[in-house]
Design a protein around this nucleic acid. Sequence first.
DNA 1: ATGAAAGCGCTAACAT
DNA 2: ATGTTAGCGCTTTCAT
Lengths: 334, 334
Amino acid sequence: MTKRTSPHPTAHDVARLAGVSQAAVSRAFTTKASIALATRNKVFEAANALGYRPNLLARSLIKGKSGMVGVVISPLSPFCMAVLDAFSARLSDVGKHMLVFTNDGAKAVDKPVEALMKFRVDAIVLIGVRVTAKQARQCHEAQVPIIAFSRSPRNMKGVASITSDNVAGSEVIARHLIAQGYRTFGYMAGPEESKASQEREAGFTAHLTSLGLPAPERAVGQFHRAGAFEAARSLLSRTPRPEAIFCATDEMALALIEVARHELNLAIGREVGVAGFDGIEEAAWPTFDLTTYSTPVESVIGHLSPMLLDEQPELPLHTVITGKLEARGSTRRD
Amino acid sequence: MTKRTSPHPTAHDVARLAGVSQAAVSRAFTTKASIALATRNKVFEAANALGYRPNLLARSLIKGKSGMVGVVISPLSPFCMAVLDAFSARLSDVGKHMLVFTNDGAKAVDKPVEALMKFRVDAIVLIGVRVTAKQARQCHEAQVPIIAFSRSPRNMKGVASITSDNVAGSEVIARHLIAQGYRTFGYMAGPEESKASQEREAGFTAHLTSLGLPAPERAVGQFHRAGAFEAARSLLSRTPRPEAIFCATDEMALALIEVARHELNLAIGREVGVAGFDGIEEAAWPTFDLTTYSTPVESVIGHLSPMLLDEQPELPLHTVITGKLEARGSTRRD
DNA sequence: ATGAAAGCGCTAACAT
DNA sequence: ATGTTAGCGCTTTCAT
């Protein structure tokens, strides 16, 4: 078998070899098409001999949709990568495919989104990146649903969103920190324009002040390691030093732990409490043992999938995912 | 503007509005097509008003190639993720796109590869996954170049490959370990069928035995964290314990460090030397300070790109990338 | 420089 | 159940 002649044999080639019509070939490769078993077998045999593969581009052209989902993701974040992993697995389960762009964090993702539209993707998923309102409107007009996860403007026309319960989660962190005996606090923020960072700060601060405690010292860590190092140095060198520091992401919290330990020789937990947000794998590593408010990835994916499969883009517009406190050693004082 | 009527206006719609032929619209969107500036402007104006976007699926159908590169990647490895990041950036630079599949490590990736072929991807890149010889042959016959990076069988017809200099690098590690005063050794392997792990072990062992030293104790860590934990416990509890342990990947080395520190209370470097391979970011973190032989990602990408752009798939069949020893605290005895 | 016409490889009526 | 026909939205000769 496989004595191919052209690099990409067509349904026509197969039809000729099998002695059937080209349409029959099409049917043979379509589940639930009415075709006699005998013909189907003839077709498969011929197809096999030629190394035929249905051209999905042609199929997509007719169907008006490609079976591909566009993904734009900010590269360097571990949490986003975890979501991407899980999402990818989920997609192959339902026979869809992933057209992926990574985007340098800060700038808006209009260019990649534009490219995705030209490929007629069935939907666009934004992971940890922002899109402009203009672009969002265009997607809406083209009837391409766009779903933003994490760090995205809410209430944008045509953009569904999935987020962690930033406010509530941060309040849980605050409560936990206080229960552990810490009394003065710091907050390490992401970029100022990040909705997620704003909400986490708000939830954290609100709980503190509601108890008559002072608002946290703050520094901006930009959601990445380099920025977090800077911010950590700033936060940890204030006098008096905050007794516990809440970082807007685990990734930044990890960086802070390293600065505290290796540059300032502080005992994590006892001399300075550290908490993060997201629940990335590394947080659970014994080395870090980081207290965090974790957003279960499976839950994110669980909410994502129906939005992609259903034809109604109007179902759950803004979903908030409830996470869970993971109390660990980084907030243990003794 | 943008008073769209259909969700996906076609070149025909634009032509009608602009009062030109449909072919003119096509030319307007083609660089280096002969078209009068005036017409082009009329077309752009109309296109803009309608929210027209050329359908790349249709274009691909004609051209016989899609402008997409297929990527199959094993999910959980940090090193592979780093390569993916860099590769993605490089691809957008040249206007190509990435159709991504992740694959549960162990099993062969024939299914994803098959799917990619149906989308008429221009090339397939395998990152840390293996493909069967049969599948490779089929790609070759379909004239879809396939490029394997890391962990892939060499000398497979139609498969170009890029690998680290596993043997030489591991020898460098051995030499370094000996120079630091370690005399008995352990090796943590990946899956037995992994070419990369085999080569790293061979290079390491060969150097030791050439010096009359005993071959290393070994355990299999499977290239992932869970496996590495097991292997680490096994390796570290042998009597006598190896003075230094070389792990086939940084990821596994990190796990070993955690076991040594937190389960066995060993001082890394002084009581047990640890070295890895790859040069992932985490290795440089102060907490780990892991000695490793690093493969520069930029170099990988640098070799990958020409294979994708050139039309000759016959240029550099098997590329070996030279890395560099990063000597750090995890192999300092004092 | 521009339009008319012929496909790219496939699916989806419509016949039979 | 099967063949025939007409497109999907675009690029590309070929005329003009």
